[in-house]
């Protein structure tokens, strides 16, 4: 029962996140990029000295923290969607191909995936990002480079499972081409497992993007990425805790919700994956 409740709560939170990312920026009066010098480091409304003007306070440049968090949600969501699209299609294409073809191609590709999974990828990402410089496009490429291998592994395993099912044999004997078989019979059947991977990865992407932005190689300022906001607030944490704390709480809430939903989906769709979330 608590399971069901937490699932609903988490799903609700995710819906709010998506809605805020889509429509939030149009509803707020403050510009996330424009500050006011008279309102620098104003505390949130409930704290001493706070006002309803800036519900979550302002940052060093007097920019409204709420407006920046809302704008940051949009950036997080955008990074997630693009990364999952890129990493998902590359990984799935390679994994499905590998599993479907089999033989030495499969062995080589899977060794590659093992390698990709065993390298200190965050460092590589950092390195790459530092070399090519911070931009939305670069961060999306970097994170996709890190995450494609999980789709490859999953789709390969699932393809192997589906490949020998009767309906695929039937399709083959009835003269359907390989590409058609993959698109019509294999992909639809492995899709649920891939959705589970994608869900579980949303949290990873958000944290990775935030970490890179925190380290200064992610979404470039003045765009309000949640990780970047935490970094900006770090140096005056003593006097203005909210600048760092609040965007972090936004990250925690969204990632927590994603994890709860991901776990529930795992249980329902592919229980074999349980406990492999690490």
């Amino acid at each position: 029962m608590t399971r069901d409740l937490s699932f609903k709560l988490a799903l609700g939170l995710l819906v709010v996140f998506v809605l805020v990312a889509l429509f939030g920026p149009y509803l707020l009066e403050h510009d996330p990029l424009r500050g006011s010098l008279r309102a620098r480091l104003d505390p949130p409304a409930w704290a001493e000295g706070g006002s309803a003007e800036h519900l979550l306070g302002t940052d060093r440049l007097g920019r409204d923290v709420l407006a920046r968090i809302v704008q940051g949600a949009r950036i997080s969501l955008a990074v997630c969607l693009v990364v999952i699209a890129i990493a998902g299609s590359i990984g799935t294409a390679l994994g499905t191909f590998s599993g479907y073809v089999g033989g030495w191609v499969d062995r080589v590709l899977m060794r590659l995936v093992d390698l990709a999974l065993s390298l200190p990828v965050i460092l590589l990402a950092l390195l790459f990002a530092a070399v090519v410089g911070p931009s939305f496009l670069n961060i999306v490429i970097v994170i996709s480079m890190v995450l494609w291998s999980q789709y490859a592994r999953m789709s390969r395993g699932e393809t192997l499972r589906v490949k020998n099912e009767d309906y695929v044999d039937l399709a083959r004997t009835s003269g359907l081409g390989h590409v058609a078989i993959i698109f019509r019979h294999v992909l639809p059947n492995i899709a649920p497992s891939l959705i589970v991977v994608a869900t579980l990865q949303v949290g990873v992407v958000i944290v990775l993007e935030a970490s890179l932005s925190f380290l200064g190689v992610g979404v470039p300022p003045p765009n309000p990425s949640w990780g970047g906001m935490v970094a900006e607030g770090r140096s005056y944490i003593v006097t203005a805790w909210w600048v760092s704390a609040l965007p972090g709480i936004a990250i925690v809430l969204v990632v927590m919700a994603v994890n709860v939903v991901g776990d529930a989906l795992t249980d329902r769709i592919n229980p074999g994956l349980r406990g492999r979330g690490a």
Binding site: G203, S211, G227, G248, I251, V252, V255, M256, N259
Partner: peptide
């Protein structure tokens, strides 16, 4: 919570 909180924050 531990799985969801980014370490820098």
């Amino acid at each position: 919570l531990g799985q969801s909180a980014p370490s820098f924050w």
